[in-house]
């Protein structure tokens, strides 16, 4: 399915309307929930790191720890899991319902390839929307981490920035974006696959939705580890 969708990228201009609609669905409509969750993750990170730091460790180092935690793990993982619940489930439910109500057959009867029409636009949209969401999630998470550190260990903005500068690596940003990009693909492919495999009836669609969320979440966690491990050794 993934390769068939990628092969159909050349027809993307014909589906520009569908791609924009999916970008709005995956990106803009996920924006509030991503901001809320990254805010609270950042706040929690600030408290945990601040209270568990060794008394002899300089406080300014918390900036770097929060920065790297958000960039390398928390940001991509939050985005991946939140979008598994919201987007993969939505895709599986929509495609599953289309299958059981003959809407997929209707597409085929009009010589419209269902993968080209339903998967390709979502895939392209996710490839742009998920990394974009990640950038916002990282910024918000890091800033809320600072707010939390300020109230927990009275860390100043200047010290927080000093810590971030000390630990900033461009490779971390690229790793973060790479993870988001791959998680976006996983979410769309698992959502679509289980939607197309949906059995008849409400129960079938419900099962497809559950499987899409479970498997995309598990795969995101597995891939998160693999990408981290591979990039560590590279």
């Amino acid at each position: 399915m993934f390769f068939k969708a990628v092969v159909s990228f050349k027809k993307a201009p014909v589906y520009s309307r569908q791609i924009i609609a999916q970008f709005v669905y995956i990106g803009r409509k996920s924006f509030p929930i991503v901001l809320i969750t990254s805010t609270f993750i950042g706040l929690a990170l600030g408290v945990q790191i601040g209270t568990q730091m060794n008394p002899i460790t300089p406080h300014w180092m918390e900036g770097g720890l929060i920065l790297r935690s958000m960039l390398l793990e928390m940001g991509p993982i939050i985005i991946g899991l939140i979008l598994s619940g919201r987007v993969a489930a939505g895709i599986a439910a929509e495609i599953g319902t289309m299958k059981v109500t003959e809407q997929i057959d209707a597409l085929r009867s009009f010589a419209i390839d269902p993968i080209e029409y339903l998967v390709m636009p979502r895939l392209i949209a996710a490839m742009f929307a998920v990394p974009t969401l990640l950038v916002f999630a990282d910024f918000v998470g890091i800033f809320s981490g600072f707010i939390s550190s300020f109230f927990t260990i009275n860390l100043s903005w200047a010290s927080f920035v000093k810590g971030m500068r000390h630990d900033f690596h461009t490779a971390d940003v690229l790793t973060s974006l790479l993870k988001a990009y791959i998680f976006g693909i996983v979410i769309v492919i698992f959502g679509s696959y289980f939607g197309f495999e949906s059995k008849r009836g409400a129960k079938g669609v419900g099962q497809a939705t559950t499987l899409a969320v479970v498997w995309s979440s598990v795969d995101i966690l597995m891939l998160d580890y693999l990408i981290s491990a591979i990039l560590y050794f590279v």
Binding site: V14, E102, A111
Partner: peptide, 29 residues
Amino acid sequence: RNNISIVFQEGALWDSMNVGENIELALQI
């Protein structure tokens, strides 16, 4: 399939699109 159309039992209209878009889709793509 360019020469044959089918009207499904329950209509099988694409419910994410309005009536006009339903009719327009095959013409567009």
